[in-house]
Design a protein around this nucleic acid. Structure first.
Length: 464
RNA sequence: UCCGGGGUAGCUCAAUUGGCAGAGCGCCGGACUGUUAAUCCGUAGGUUGUGGGUUCGAGUCCCACCCCCGGAGCCA
């Protein structure tokens, strides 16, 4: 007898057929009429399947009545139309094989709602909850849609290295990768750690971005995307930041900032459509229990063009705003979170792409505009989450790039190969990074990135 | 890292001026029921984050530290 996923069994209507499913008990309700209702879930879909366990079953008293929430079982029985409310299909069990009991005294999940904070402490079990199960399926759908979107458009999937010897990729503090024994490091003559003795013969770190690698490949095979983990050793304690997170970074040759913004907008809309098409039950759950405005937010992405404004226009809008900000916005200072939220949530009510930021507070690789003050950068901002995409047209002119690096105080020697890309057959190109966890937040209405990645890494937290 | 809030039963929380540590839910036992976050009755369940201090007496006041959450910064 072939076992089926519960998703497949629930979709059937050939009542009378024999089916086999397996999963974990979500609830058990006993009837002293001599039988029990067992809701079994295997994570293949939001719903559980109701199993009717009759008292005649040989192991009814000995096992089934001891089978609490979290127990695992394999059930074979007859698919029947359910007379009860809340489900159309159920299984009248012919046999129930208990695979693993879960002691209700010590099993940490209960039928009642458990706080997200508590679930983080039992991250190895939290995927068995409605919410985290739904998050897991949406996250998967976004990943699938990502590959589909880029593959359809001729982008090559690029596996960028996770270990880098660039000591500054321009995006925050880095984790060091070393094989040196910290208790007994090799030392130079002046007593400092001798990194030339380390595994790579120089200091090495976990990557903060695959962008530089992606640029090299885009300037050879036209368009690529990376999709992998990224690491930031910042002491960030917010609901939007992780020390290890997943980022998708497309990079296109022969493309400018406008092409880049088009790609980002198409990509985000593509993902939202895919989730709407494939995760209906999960979204319904989020809209009911997590974020009542979720469907409106998603509809705003599908039905509208994103608003596009320049940084300068944004500062003007903020200056005219009829409200007080904690920090005033002046041209030349970066937009504060409160400014971004005002623009996205109050002025436009849909995603906003802000472009052309001042050179002073943006990265060295961004292409300098003709005005001499701004660079061809862009941020995509969405309601609730804020910045979900950051990108730019890259500086393809060797002399300008070298000048920008000089102004930013960077050592050109470390970037010799990056400069080579401009020295030999340079071309206009552009790309961006999209944070997967932030995208999951946006598509689920969840509030905290720590709840939308399987095992979150944050300062002082890497238990699982 | 900075600012604010918090840490009391398995979970979510209460505890007046410093005066006998409580409730709901869950678990367990019983009743009842084609049930749906079932309902009703009952039992058990505590090193009040850690370490000091003040006091006849500290969950409560003082000092130090740890951890969690939210906001800010860093950014995706």
């Amino acid at each position: 007898m072939e076992r089926q996923l519960i998703r497949q069994a629930l979709a059937r209507s050939d009542f009378g057929s024999v089916v086999t499913v397996a999963g974990w008990v979500r609830t058990r309700r006993d009837s002293k009429g001599g039988f029990s209702f067992i809701e079994l879930n295997d994570g293949s879909c939001f719903g559980s399947i109701q199993v009717i366990a009759d008292g005649d079953l040989p192991n009814y008293e000995s096992e089934i009545l001891r089978m609490g929430i979290g127990s695992s079982a394999k059930v074979t029985g007859t698919l029947t139309e359910s007379p009860g409310q809340g489900q159309s299909v159920e299984i009248k069990a012919a046999s129930i094989e208990v695979l693993g009991f879960a002691d209700p005294e010590t099993y940490p999940l209960q039928k009642k709602r458990v706080s997200f904070e508590r679930l983080r402490e039992i991250a190895h079990l939290r995927a068995r909850t409605n919410t985290i199960g739904a998050v897991t399926r949406v996250r998967n759908a976004l990943s699938y849609a990502t590959h589909q979107f880029y593959q359809e458009r001729g982008f090559l999937y690029l596996t960028a290295p996770l270990i880098t010897a660039s000591d500054a990729e321009g995006a925050g503090e880095m984790f060091r990768v070393t094989t040196i024994d910290p208790a007994n490091p090799p030392l130079t003559a002046d007593g400092a750690v001798d990194w030339s003795e380390d595994f790579f013969g120089k200091p090495a770190f976990l990557t903060v971005s695959g962008q530089l690698s992606a640029e090299a490949y885009a300037l050879a095979v036209d368009r690529v995307y990376t999709f992998g983990p990224t690491f930031r050793a910042e002491n960030s304690n917010t609901r939007r930041h992780l020390a290890e997170f997943w980022m998708i970074e497309p990079e296109m040759a022969f493309a400018d900032l406008s092409d880049n913004a088009d790609l980002a907008e198409d990509y985000v809309r593509y993902m939202v459509r895919h989730v709407l098409n494939t995760c209906g039950d999960d979204l319904e759950f989020f809209a009911k229990w997590v974020d009542e405005s979720l469907m409106d937010s998603l509809a705003a992405v599908v039905d509208n063009q994103f608003e596009r404004i320049t940084y300068t226009e944004a500062v003007d809008l903020l200056g005219k705003a009829d409200r007080d900000f904690e920090y005033p916005s002046t041209w030349g200072s970066d937009l504060q979170a409160e400014h971004e939220r005002y623009l996205v949530e109050e002025v436009f009510g849909k995603p906003v792409i802000v472009t052309d930021f001042p050179f002073d507070f943006k990265a060295f690789y961004m292409r300098r505009n003709d005005d001499g003050k701004t660079v061809a950068a862009m941020d995509v901002l969405v309601p609730q989450v804020g910045e979900i995409v950051g990108g730019s047209q890259r500086e393809e002119r060797l002399d300008v790039l070298a000048d920008s690096m000089r102004i930013k105080g960077m050592d050109k020697e470390h970037y010799w190969w990056y400069l080579d890309l401009r020295r030999f057959g340079t071309a206009p190109h552009a790309g961006f990074g999209l944070g997967l966890e932030r995208m999951v937040l946006f598509t689920t209405g969840m509030q905290n990135v720590r709840d939308v990645i399987p095992f979150p890494r944050t300062p002082r937290n890497a238990e699982f």
